[in-house]
Deep mutational scan, measured.
Amino acid sequence: MSGNGNAAATAEENSPKMRVIRVGTRKSQLARIQTDSVVATLKASYPGLQFEIIAMSTTGDKILDTALSKIGEKSLFTKELEHALEKNEVDLVVHSLKDLPTVLPPGFTIGAICKRENPHDAVVFHPKFVGKTLETLPEKSVVGTSSLRRAAQLQRKFPHLEFRSIRGNLNTRLRKLDEQQEFSAIILATAGLQRMGWHNRVGQILHPEECMYAVGQGALGVEVRAKDQDILDLVGVLHDPETLLRCIAERAFLRHLEGGCSVPVAVHTAMKDGQLYLTGGVWSLDGSDSIQETMQATIHVPAQHEDGPEDDPQLVGITARNIPRGPQLAAQNLGISLANLLLSKGAKNILDVARQLNDAH
């Protein structure tokens, strides 16, 4: 009898209710805020589980004197976190989706994509230029951005401005803007500013005609071990179906173009009346040469937790077992079709030249 009692006690200790789920994140304040929001949602869904947040620095956090596009290494903000995932030191990792490459290392998958916040870019102005827009900034004003995508589009749109690289986390960039006289304004992701509670610093939100956004911008991705079915089931509740389908289309477009950090590629997606609209573009580094096109596809946005595919093969690095396969494939095909259209119009040449120029500098 006593033996059975011990077995029952052991089973209770090993039951999922007692389990601590370890969540990996970057150390920056924004990353911690984003991770806290994901953990809060998981806690609400699984009140019996405990969650421990483990923060670590990544290569991208450490190399702050070089433009991201020049470092010449993929997975700048993800490699150390993936290493911890691989060694079973954490069970899942919360990322900004735009930091996750469209091809993940073997053994990993994006197990959830959370509801997207505003994906557009924002302009934050130096205190002396508050009330201005990019259009009304004085001639030769210097605007800071760490992104080739932003610089290429904005140089084309605002030729009277000069664009220079600015690195560091959000706090560091804002301090550089406010305390030094080098920059009249800087460009940042609206979602990051909003998550930090800095709505009052948003001086201008850039519309798609001015600057399309990065693939996955404004959404959070939760990376897990691809074979860890328990954790895949656990994080599945975080999937937002519309965000998922938009981001599958965007990531398929980028992957098929073979774009990345070192080339200016941008997108804009919208879901309306059962249609998914995808606009994508590529630019030369100075913005003088560009190709942009829009395509659409009829896609039914499923309700969360309709029964999805059981075999769960990944699409552009994403596993969404609780979302039907048909809409996911339709979104992926839309991204591939748009990429093929741009490639047929000469996108590869623009991107190759951009890559060579970026590598040469």
Rank of each mutant, 00 (worst) to 15 (best):
T172C: 08
P101R: 03
K176L: 12
S288T: 10
S37R: 11
I205W: 00
R325D: 12
L174M: 14
P302N: 00
A330V: 14
T319Q: 01
K115W: 06
I231R: 04
G287K: 01
F129A: 06
A122R: 03
T41R: 11
L42R: 01
D240K: 11
P138Q: 14
L81M: 08
I299D: 13
Q332G: 07
A67E: 01
E82P: 01
I113K: 02
A191G: 06
E310L: 10
R246D: 02
R156Y: 06
I21T: 08
R26G: 00
L92R: 03
V23N: 01
V20E: 06
R355C: 00
L244I: 03
V39Q: 08
R156P: 12
I33M: 08
S37H: 12
S146D: 04
I323R: 07
P159A: 12
H300R: 05
P208I: 13
K87T: 12
E89H: 08
E82C: 06
K27I: 09
V94M: 00
E258N: 02
V90C: 10
N169I: 03
S45I: 15
I110K: 04
K62C: 06
T102R: 12
C114P: 10
P138G: 08
G280Q: 03
G335W: 03
T102V: 06
R251E: 03
R255K: 03
Y213H: 14
S146I: 09
T190S: 05
R19T: 10
L276E: 03
A360N: 02
T25V: 05
V265N: 02
D91C: 05
K140E: 14
T172N: 12
K74R: 05
T35D: 00
V353G: 07
L49E: 00
A249K: 04
K87N: 14
V301R: 09
M56N: 07
L329Y: 05
F163S: 08
L97Y: 00
I33E: 03
P47S: 11
H268M: 15
S45V: 09
V282Y: 03
I166L: 11
L170R: 02
T172W: 04
L134S: 02
A360D: 12
D61T: 02
V123G: 07
L285G: 15
E250Q: 09
D307Q: 04
L232I: 14
A44G: 12
A112T: 09
Q328R: 01
D121A: 03
K115F: 10
L92I: 12
D228I: 02
A330M: 01
K115I: 09
E306S: 10
S37T: 14
V235C: 02
G236M: 01
H199N: 14
D121L: 03
I205M: 10
L92K: 03
D359K: 05
K27S: 12
E89P: 02
A330C: 15
A249M: 03
V94F: 04
N118P: 10
A31E: 00
L92Q: 04
H83T: 12
D99Q: 01
V237A: 02
I71P: 07
H300G: 13
K74P: 06
G218F: 00
V130H: 13
A320T: 12
Q50R: 11
R355Q: 12
H83M: 12
Q204G: 07
H120W: 13
A40V: 12
R321I: 10
F125C: 02
R32E: 07
K348R: 15
S262M: 00
L81I: 13
V123R: 01
A219L: 01
T294F: 09
M56A: 12
